[in-house]
Design a protein around this nucleic acid. Sequence first.
RNA 1: GCGGAUGUGGCGGAAUGGCAGACGCAGCAGACUCAAAAUCUGCCGGUGGCAACAUCGUGUGGGUUCAAGUCCCACCAUCCGCACCA
Length: 809
Amino acid sequence: MAGKVPYNHNVIEKKWRKRWKENPINVEGDKEKYYCLDMFPYPSGNGLHVGHWRGYVISDVWSRYKMLQGYYLIHPMGWDAFGLPAENYAIKNGVHPSISTAENVKNIKRQINEIAAIYDWDREVNTTDPDYYKWTQWIFVKMFKEGLAYEKEMPINWCPSCKTGLANEEVVDGKCERCGAEVTKKNLRQWMLKITAYADRLLADLDKLDWPEKVKKMQTDWIGKSYGAEVDFKVDGRDETITVYTTRPDTLWGATFMVLAPEHELSASLATPETKEAVDKYIYEASMKSNVDRMQDKEKTGVFTGSYAINPLNGKKTPIWLSDYVLADYGTGAIMCVPAHDDRDFEFAKKFGLPIVQVIAKDGKEIENMTEAYTEAAGTMINSGDWNGMESAVLKKEAPAMIEAKGYGKKTTNYKLRDWVFSRQRYWGEPIPIVHCPDCGPVAVPEEELPVLLPDVEKYEPTGTGESPLAAIDSWVNTTCPCCGKPAKRETNTMPQWAGSSWYFLRYVDNKNSDELVNREKADKYLPVDMYIGGVEHAVLHLLYSRFYTKFLNDIGVIDFDEPFKKLFNQGMVCGRDRETGAATKMSKSLGNIVSPDDIVRDYGCDSLRLYELFIGPPELDSIWDDRGMEGIYRFLNRLWNMFTENKDRDVAVTKELEKIRNKMVYDITTRLEQFSLNTVVSGFMEVNNKLVELTKTTGVDKETLKTLTILLAPFAPHIGEEMWEQLGGTDSVFHQTWPTYDESKMADDEKEIAVQINGKTRGTVTVSVDAEKDAVLAAAKEVVKDKLIGNIVKEIYVPGRIVNIVMK
RNA sequence: GCGGAUGUGGCGGAAUGGCAGACGCAGCAGACUCAAAAUCUGCCGGUGGCAACAUCGUGUGGGUUCAAGUCCCACCAUCCGCACCA
């Protein structure tokens, strides 16, 4: 066709990226803010693959949609740039991490800009920038002053490969989350953050959040709150008392023995001369076992100490054992054992021939030849003295108070959450701003002296001794005490990578402020985050730490809210296909199945890639990259472009049909987008385009429909959207238009084809007017299937606009 | 072991309890072309049938309902999370 300009993505995309740079489209005015945040990336040397892009595309589409709804966007990007890979690269190549990091940032920034993301680079932050980590350190100092950061010598998780301590959250299946090496225990002086002080609030406030239930559940489980009682057992013939924690105080009469963790402070001393050798051996062996060994030991082990404890309720002597199935750092490190009603205690009792006393009747009676523990708190109490006859479920709730009233112990709660091991023995992280003074102890570096700059070192290698490489720089380590002025030494441990990422979203709204972490007025205006988009891998670590930091900063008056992220969306991964098996596999260099967005953008354009990233599948599920699917999207954009160019200069009158198509299009796209069903938004565009292509051959498509389509499409394919808008005569950016609305009355069909079923099976169709009477529809329907109406009609069902079902016989 | 997610054509996937398979990919046939690519048109779950049509069909087995991919019960498989937390 004459005058037809083919779709040239290169020309269009280049043109509009330049325009956006010259005339930013996101302007504040007096608009309300909308804060849409991406999880900021670690600037890896590999750059991004199409999987990383998925989240960025989703957040960009959502942001542009919000923009068309009239919001001013906070849509920033930054770099989580401290961490091991840069340091390991430095060790290998002798390049300072700050140099390799800067190079990687540059490359990834280029890639991200090709998504056409409207990131506001004026807000950019980098966790390794001293102006940034000054405030990371400042938060630590504040926590230290509030007693939330403290030092402790304790056995911690130690990764022998990374040569650093790890938080519990960083240990997966007994292995290092980062490198996969088996984690061992090491006694080290550590900086800890008292996140447990916030356990209750971290748990309760989950209710406030519009987050995936899965993530809330994971955090709930990680915090692991339980209700029960601490009960004091006197050691027979000695002055000591052993306190146990139990969630089942109702079964106290059934406690027939007690088990202590080998690490319990009384473990060794409970041994008698006869048992001493065996007890010491057991304690020693337990201390040598790694986490993995301990978890893999399915068979229970244990040793009798020779001592007995007195059950406070019935005065009975119960033997005290040691076993490593009891955890030293949960509860009190000691448990009372009720083998009749606990699986683990049952197994232990069976193995070592300990007595089993049932105290809850199952189905109203005592079980003969018990083969497994009865763990339900359901049934009447038996063998339980004055508790006999009570309901277990009731007693379970009341017993803690009863025990407390009698002076046998107290009502209590417990958490699985532990305090956060916060120090790392590595180089590339924020120095912990503490000075150790022989007289004053640990002293915080005065706030006006922050940041404590990370010094250059010659050797980045972790020492492996439990000291950071910083310890080798005498000139840096030796300083004076800020308190008394005497010679003192700097803390040489650094912070974990999580430190910088636990609060970065606050800094974006005031990233150049050198006097405050964030200006309060700006914080009140632009925070918190309305929508947070990122992978589910941060369900516990990053998201829990960020919530903790936010609550702390709220407590000390820096900000006015106590939850950072109102809404959270986890996008699925984009997998590659295994060349041989065809199975979905993570994209990785070693498998050679990485698809680079650079190649795709070059061949098909950024708009095509954006649409394919959405069309590939439901955004919350993992999906598989398919090059041919990518081509299909490209074909669609070409068809759309051709349809557009053939209609844009025609003078087409609005018909009822066109009006219907337009309203239905707005309805479909809007509702699907609101439901975050982004894959079906794209198919919705294809459907409407197919219809418009048909109309192009006959009546053509009117301007209003083309304009509406253009605005709807713009958040998804912004370059072509802008180009179409301009060609339709728009003088301002398409993103300064208003999101279209629909009129339901103009969407509906006058006539509808509905199915006619007999006994639930479709036997024909009938086209009826939507406002036809039931009797008329039924009559028409019966006419269609009259040959098949053999027998008696029992019931006739008509669901207007949907179906007729005739029930026979 | 506990918890969660998922299971629909050759593939990715779509379906407020109401005609299963939208949309796309692949495939087949045709048009255009000397030819190919691109593009356009048509077909495209299985079985039977020239066809109209019939029949089976959403992991398996039951159930509720006029009607079930969708709701309920019991399983199976895959993936993810937690895992001796008393």
